[in-house]
């Protein structure tokens, strides 16, 4: 009996700390609407970003890039605060209901995404939000920082996922953050503002695993 107790005690369940991972890598373009031209601060105006998903974390998203195209779309809430710092930087925060969606659409039989010009237009965002919504959520804290000299900038915030066919895959993940750069470029399609590139990341709890005392001790050596 004593032997049995000892053997049970030696089989510990060790919770490994949460692990930060990338969910998707994204690139595309952004615009403001209905007041166009990158007017980030106009009242009752939307900031919108859309594009392609370049890569996805297979642990959390089931994807088939050979047969499907993957796209994303962001639709902001209205402007909440706008500050200018040192005459060089604009910092803009938006209301608590910015929508973010990730979509899957078959290459064969689906509709290829197309940016077109002067969005919103016939193909944007329509060809970025067709197919299946695999993840959808709300960002309560979208923040855009703009260098008012170069007109380059970045956006960041968190996302609470609450919809999509693969929502269950994120069980155990506590937070999602996004970080995206924006680069003004004459090659950007007419009517768009920035060429954007960035990522959406996850913080997920790692599953428990069996370990002996010896293995536990090794973690601290």
């Amino acid at each position: 009996m004593k032997l049995l107790r000892i053997s049970i005690a030696m089989l510990l369940f060790v919770a490994v700390p949460a692990t930060a991972v990338q969910l998707v890598d994204i690139s595309g373009f952004d615009y403001t609407f209905p007041v166009t031209g990158g007017d980030f601060t106009a009242p009752n105006n939307y900031y919108e970003a859309l594009g392609q998903i370049q890569s996805a974390n297979g642990t959390y998203l089931t994807t088939d890039f050979g047969n499907n195209q993957y796209t994303f779309y962001m639709l902001s809430d209205f402007i909440a605060t706008a500050d200018t710092l040192g005459g060089l930087f604009g910092v803009y925060t938006y209301g608590p209901n910015t929508f973010v969606g990730l979509y899957e659409d078959a290459i064969g039989g689906g509709t290829a995404y197309a940016y077109g010009t002067n969005p919103q237009n016939a193909s944007a965002p329509a060809t970025f939000v067709d197919g299946a919504l695999i993840l959808g959520g709300i960002s309560p804290d979208l923040t855009i920082t703009v260098n008012l000299s170069t007109l380059d900038g970045s956006l960041a915030g968190t996302i609470g996922w609450n919809a999509g066919s693969q929502l269950a895959n994120l069980t155990g993940c506590t937070t999602t953050d996004f970080a995206v750069i924006g680069h003004g470029d004459p090659g950007v399609p007419v009517g768009y503002v920035w060429d954007i590139d960035g990522e959406i990341s996850l913080l997920c709890a790692t599953a428990t695993e069996d370990a002996s005392w010896t293995e536990v001790k090794e973690l601290f050596q």
Partner: peptide, 20 residues
Amino acid sequence: MTTTINALFGCPPGISGDWH
């Protein structure tokens, strides 16, 4: 080359920025 770190809003949305 320039880098920008936005440390105004803490976390979230995190200390973010860009470089060009």
